[in-house]
Design a protein around this nucleic acid. Structure first.
Length: 308
DNA sequence: AACTCAGTCAACCGCCCGCTC
DNA sequence: GGAGCGGGCGGTTGACTGAGT
């Protein structure tokens, strides 16, 4: 049998994973789980940001949901699975193997041989790859030289950055994932606030693929929400911003909302590879039609402009 | 400082297996 | 039953690092 079909694609990236790739994968898996690995690379590029702007002199009551479709992971599903199982999974234990673990590995290996996955199933938090590497690099040697004293300081030569993963949750709080830290997600809704995004190194992704979001949303223009909206919704006064297309879109929405019944579509394709706003005067999402395809967004914008 | 070498481990490759159609 | 697909697994590679010279 040959390679997996997903691994035959020429645009599939190989080699070491970047922190941005890791973050995409962590956020996707945390929110959606990993039912079908082949779907992970594509779907890991879709993010949803929520904002709310309260009533003010320049700004009517607006609920904004921004769906940002940036390029997903340029990896095959198999590579994503491997990265998650062997490295990013939050319950992975890193660092030195304890003498008890070492003894268990030896006895299990005597019993079942090189069935690393089976051995790993008896050592919570340890991966088959990690045990296999440990066996090949250390235990073999130790068995070959039974007189050598058990050394503890050679078993974990790596620096801390390889034992923990930086992670920014949807509230913009920084976390390190290590053997003691579970991913601190508060609910599975997979909704990110703008503030959290632009404070995190998601910036790198936005700057690369979607324009300078940071320049469009200045820190002083984001203020704390008041009212019953959930914590992840950060209000933005769309009228107080620079004369960018981003906020021109906001002005258009405000103007249009005053004339039209419910909501308006704004194509921000210039800044986001495939993104749009849905602004609903009642603060509600507009139902199924709020998720247009990329192909019809332009049409919707054109028809919107024609109304002006 | 520059080079070599050994150890570590993340990631890939190829195969097997189970599931679905 | 068999072809296709995807997940899982073990073997292997090679990038990286640090110690030694």
């Amino acid at each position: 049998m040959g390679k997996h079909s997903c691994c035959n694609q020429e645009n599939v990236k190989r080699g070491l994973w970047s922190p941005e790739e890791d973050e995409k994968l962590i956020k996707y898996i945390t929110a959606h789980g990993y039912g079908c690995w082949s779907e992970v690379p594509e779907k890991a590029g879709v993010f949803v940001a929520c904002t709310r702007a309260p009533p003010s002199e320049n700004c009517i009551y607006i609920y904004t949901e921004v769906t940002i479709c940036i390029p997903g992971l340029q990896r095959c599903g198999k590579s994503c699975r491997l990265r998650w199982i062997n490295y990013l999974r939050p319950d992975i234990r890193r660092g030195r193997f304890t003498p008890e673990e070492e003894q268990l590995i030896i006895s299990l290996h005597e019993a079942v041989g090189n069935r690393w996955a089976h051995i790993a199933s008896h050592l919570p938090g340890r991966t088959d790859n990690g045990i296999k590497n440990y066996w090949n690099s250390w235990i073999k040697k130790k068995i070959r030289k039974p007189s050598s004293p058990a050394s503890t300081n050679m078993e974990n030569p790596r620096t801390d950055h390889q034992h923990s993963q930086f992670f920014v949750d949807k509230f913009g709080q920084n976390h390190f994932l290590n053997q003691e830290t579970l991913i601190p997600f508060h609910d599975p809704s997979f909704t990110f606030d703008i503030n959290g995004i632009y404070n995190s190194h998601m910036d790198q992704i936005f700057l690369e693929h979607a324009g300078t979001l940071q320049n469009q949303i200045q820190a002083e223009e984001i203020f704390q929400p008041a009212g019953s909206f959930s914590d992840n919704m950060v209000p933005i006064d769309v009228q107080s911003c620079d004369n960018t297309n981003f906020f021109k879109a906001g002005e258009m929405a405000v103007d249009s909302l005053q004339r039209q019944e419910d909501s308006i579509w704004i194509d921000t394709h210039q800044y986001f590879s495939s993104s749009y706003f849905v602004w609903d005067q009642a603060g509600q999402l507009g139902g199924e039609e709020i998720f247009p395809t990329t192909s019809n967004m332009g049409t919707m914008l054109e028809s919107s402009n024609e109304h002006e």
